[in-house]
């Protein structure tokens, strides 16, 4: 083995230079041309950054479209899911509480109509999106709180719905942050 150690060390040094210095530097340079300059795309209201487009944030107030439950409380300093198994009794209790909370905040919604994603935590804890159904079910509550017409809100949701990739692949979704920014501008 001894005769291979020296070439190995030299090859290692060379590869570190290429793979850990030049390669990331190249990608960082290219990212300057990308939206967000490789720092993440931000969303601003009146010139003030209120969040990152791709990073979900906590929306629990009744006047906003609420996002999904999060195991890290939407603090993007970290990330992660609950890692709870469906068979776990504690987990079942948590889900039951979420259902009860949702019903309390959304009078008039029948329990069976609650979309599963609103009572289950996301994988990252930072899910920025909702399915259109999960946004639409909140329309009645928001309309009542904000004294807006439900039709207007439904149009808002459908305007913000992103179709599947090329119209054929993947789910439809709504970005919660962008939807709520637009919601604040509705009269």
């Amino acid at each position: 083995m001894k005769k291979y150690i020296w070439p190995s060390i030299k090859l290692t040094l060379f590869m570190v230079l290429v793979l850990a210095v030049l390669y990331p530097a190249l990608i960082a340079a290219v990212s300057k041309a990308a939206p967000g300059q490789g720092k993440g795309e931000t969303v601003s209201v009146n010139g003030k950054v209120v969040g990152y487009e791709n990073v979900g944030q906590r929306f629990t107030e009744d006047k906003y479209f609420n996002g999904r439950p999060s195991a890290v409380n939407y603090n993007a300093a970290g990330s992660g899911g609950s890692n709870k198994a469906a068979s776990n009794p504690d987990y079942q209790k948590t889900v039951q509480e979420r259902i009860d909370t949702f019903l309390a905040h959304n009078p008039g919604v029948k329990k069976e109509d609650i979309p599963a994603e609103l009572v289950t935590a996301s994988g990252s804890g930072l899910d920025p999106d909702l399915s259109p159904a999960a946004a639409l079910i909140q329309v009645r509550r928001i309309a009542a709180v904000r004294h807006l017409s439900e039709t207007k809100l439904m149009t808002l949701v459908s305007d913000h719905t992103e179709r599947p990739l090329m119209g054929i692949a993947g789910p439809s979704k709504v970005n919660v942050l962008k939807l709520n920014v637009a919601l604040d501008t509705l009269k």
Binding site: S82, Q92, Q96, I114, A116, D127
Partner: peptide, 15 residues
């Protein structure tokens, strides 16, 4: 628990 939509979304992402 009485939900009609039972999609297994725990630990999964909407997008």
């Amino acid at each position: 628990m009485g939900l009609k939509d039972i999609t297994a979304m725990e630990g999964k992402e909407a997008r």
